[in-house]
């Protein structure tokens, strides 16, 4: 299985109260459960990221319920009001129960 690798892009520093844009992407096939195996004709079982949560110092920024219609390597972009220095946490939950995480520190400056 291809390795699942989260990638996030956040500014290294920001002014307090500034609106910052956060971009996230995770390499994941997002197998929709609709496709058929070309050789056997069997349905390929669904395996997607079904939940994405971004939080900053424990406070939620966005929380997305994901359905199979989101493309492979799901990409999410959103804005956050920067409350002060801290760590941003990202969590992707897979259908098989595994959780992939990423963390980024943002400084005031």
């Amino acid at each position: 299985m291809a390795k699942v690798k989260p990638r996030v892009k956040v500014p290294k520093k920001a002014e307090v109260g500034e609106v910052i844009t956060i971009k996230t992407l995770i390499s994941h096939p997002m197998e929709s459960g609709q496709r058929k195996d070309k050789k056997t004709g069997d349905l390929i079982p669904r395996k997607i990221i079904n939940k994405f949560v971004a939080s900053f110092e424990g406070q939620e920024v966005v929380n997305v319920d994901v359905d199979p219609a989101v493309s492979a390597n799901p990409y999410f972009q959103f804005d956050m009001k920067f409350p002060g220095a801290g760590t941003m946490k990202f969590e992707w939950t897979d259908d098989d129960g595994s959780v992939y995480t990423a963390e980024k520190k943002i400084k005031v400056g």
Partner: peptide, 22 residues
């Protein structure tokens, strides 16, 4: 269903961008 975006207290604008299958 495609996705449901829930915006938390720190969200700056109620907007989000993603890529979807049609």
């Amino acid at each position: 269903g495609v996705a449901t975006f829930n915006f938390g207290p720190l969200s700056a604008a109620s907007e989000a961008k993603t890529r979807i299958r049609l």
